[in-house]
Design a binder for these strands. Structure first.
Lengths: 194, 194
DNA sequence: AGTGAACTAAACAGATCGGTTTACTGCAAG
DNA sequence: CTTGCAGTAAACCGATCTGTTTAGTTCACT
């Protein structure tokens, strides 16, 4: 075994079905019966593999997180050419491509956060870890690009990422990624990046 | 009648209870039974006044929208002093105050959008109207401030508003409003505002 | 040959979902 | 004095919710 990520075949199907349904219809609105039916699997199998809906939600967010991290690092470091300045801007291109592919309804993590008010829910930890990881990632790039204050620039870049993601789901302005990218360019200039 | 906004006393209590519960726990997770109980009212009264949960959700979003619009215009025009440039920046101060008061869990509209995937849901119209109104508002201010391209600047300012709002709910950076404000200043400079 | 993990099928539990119904009260305006 | 609106109280509807249980099958490894 396995290209299933260490999961049994049935668990793999369950997680795939859950991911699609949770993202498309919302976490609370999707019941375990529907997930099992859509995965072509019994509810018993679902509970044998994941234990609870809460744990399944956590696994869904965890896997989405891993996929996004892999995508971003891969895109930023692709071709290993380019200045740090260019690599920062490339995070926005990566975001744009990612969203065109699998984010028509906004950020899966922000959407999930809206549905998980309980701060004790294990999914909440995954969400905040993801956002903190992105901030750290952008901070490193900002430092490499020679920003006077890498922390402040990182804050600003995170804000641009999140703004672009939300607006992409809401369809109120034409090209949120382009707007974010141009704002990022300005922010880097003012931060003294080479 | 009425400082209740044209609602009967019971309807007023229902809408208040619904607003608090929907925002705090999410729309799907809150049932009509709970709303009626919390409002100290019968389910029958709820259905007599609002007709359906869907309509109640719409009324909740509608009222929140009105309150936010009133707040923003009032804050921006307060003292009627200040250049257009200052009025743009004041929209961020207004956002910051609003969020400190009643937005600990992120934007109510973005959260609602996450839970209303059905594009036919009447609440969706309220949400997109709200965002388009904000964009128009910022566009006017951008034009008054002498931006070379008021539409582009408006896009950027909306993005900063949304980014700040989302990050405020996620608590990943220290002061999202300050970051947005400083980015806005830079954007206006580059847009040639006086 | 035998063990154990992964799975199907289907019934069951108690709670809650959105929504309806019947029967009754209090009260203001014509 | 009556009509009608706003409201309470509580039972009821069928569906769905998360989660459990019992019983049996398939199959790889030892």
């Amino acid at each position: 075994m396995t290209e299933t990520g260490g999961l049994t075949p049935a668990a793999r199907k369950i997680l795939d079905a859950a991911a699609e349904l949770f993202y498309a219809r919302g976490i609370t609105a999707v019941g375990v019966d529907l997930i099992a039916r859509e995965a072509g699997v019994t509810k018993k199998t679902l509970y044998d593999r994941f234990g609870s809906k809460e744990a399944l939600v956590e696994a869904y967010l965890r896997e989405r997180d891993e996929r996004w991290r892999r995508w971003l690092t891969e895109q930023v470091e692709s071709g290993d050419a380019g200045t740090a300045h260019e690599r920062v801007l490339r995070t926005f291109d990566a975001l744009g491509l990612w969203m065109r592919r699998e984010n028509p309804r906004g950020c899966g993590f922000v959407n999930a956060a809206a549905e998980l008010p309980d701060p004790e829910h294990p999914g909440r930890k995954v969400i905040s870890e993801q956002k903190r990881w992105l901030r750290g990632c952008l901070r490193d790039l900002a430092a490499q690009a020679g920003a006077r204050d890498a922390d402040q620039l990182a804050d600003e870049l995170v804000l641009l990422h999140e703004g672009a993601t939300v607006l992409n789901g809401l369809r109120v302005i034409a090209d949120p990624v382009a707007a974010a990218r141009s704002l990022a360019r300005g922010a880097m200039e003012r931060a003294g990046c080479r």
